[in-house]
Design a protein around this nucleic acid. Structure first.
Lengths: 164, 164
DNA sequence: GTGTATCTGCAACCAGCTCGCAAGTACGGT
DNA sequence: ACCGTACTTGCGAGCTGGTTGCAGATACAC
């Protein structure tokens, strides 16, 4: 199960292909660049490439796949650079990452839908409706005092298609 | 941040020390041994040691800590053996494991409280009330068709103590 | 007891991720 | 437009959590 196959291919892995119905994020490339500068970070070609890849992509994506997408804009960009860029963007508040079960962490733009569910069968990722998330967060807080941060984890289960 | 310090010490890491208020599981050592035999598995000293450690411990625990506890019953037990034992016990249905954010996976007896929340500040683990879990599962299923399996993931946030 | 299929300890390995370092580059100052 | 320098990048080595191949040990059916 190698990590890098043909970097010229644009498509990403199954987990990210089957994403659907995500709300659009509020970030533009310019806004993100401004946010970077405001934190004293430089707006470099690799960072711009990662940012563009994130803006093009709909929904959470893992770093190897993100690297392949960024490579389309910035050939030769290194995976370690993408990891560091993602960390920088997270500090600035542009992205967050979420751990979904066994695989690698998934990166997404901050402001995208908060809570996602990952199908254990097909790997598809679906957003969880805000009303359900609110009920979970407030219910937990009222009964236990625990303040959940729904952006930091993913739910797991079987999607409607696989359940049928 | 080494993994193994003094194996003769019984205490486990912070994450597992601060567990509290967990429902008691339904397994006894004999029942678990029977379940193993029923699946054609042998009841060996290392497996018994891991099982006893799990029964003694209250709440989810990671494999290094579980190994240290099992070592009390079976000195010299190897961590790789504990990983394999946990996998075997999972096949038999005695345990499940849950991924809680960045750190190692946590093992727990099947039948223990299903959904837990991990504090990002102090690492403490708290059970989420069944009523809240039910609302989440049914709410998600009704609105999206997605069938969540709450035993397979953990929630994250800030516990009541750290929030204060 | 004895035989054998399963299991364990060990060490090597793998995936995901991080880090140290030298070369490269954004960008404020001029 | 050019310089200087501090920040970034590519690269490879390294780290952590977890898995695996193998030879010796052992549970357990007979």
């Amino acid at each position: 199960m190698g990590h890098f196959t043909d970097p010229t291919r644009q498509n990403v892995n199954m987990r990210t292909e089957s994403v659907r119905a995500f709300e659009r994020h509020a970030w533009s490339a310019d806004q993100a660049a401004e946010a970077l500068k405001a934190h004293g970070c430089r707006v470099t070609r690799p960072r711009t490439a990662v940012l563009r890849a994130l803006l093009e992509h709909d929904g959470p994506i893992d770093v190897p796949a993100l690297t392949r997408m960024a490579e389309f804009h910035e050939p030769g960009i290194h995976e370690a650079t993408v990891y560091r860029t993602v960390a920088t963007l997270a500090e600035v508040g542009i992205v967050t990452h979420v751990h979904a079960g066994h695989g690698p962490a998934l990166v997404r733009l901050h402001g995208d839908v908060a809570l996602v569910a990952v199908c254990q069968d097909c790997g598809s990722i679906e957003p969880v409706p805000a009303s359900v998330v609110d009920a979970l967060v407030t219910g937990t807080q009222v009964t236990t005092g625990f303040v959940l941060e729904p952006g930091h984890f993913a739910l797991e289960g079987i999607c409607a298609a696989c359940a049928a």
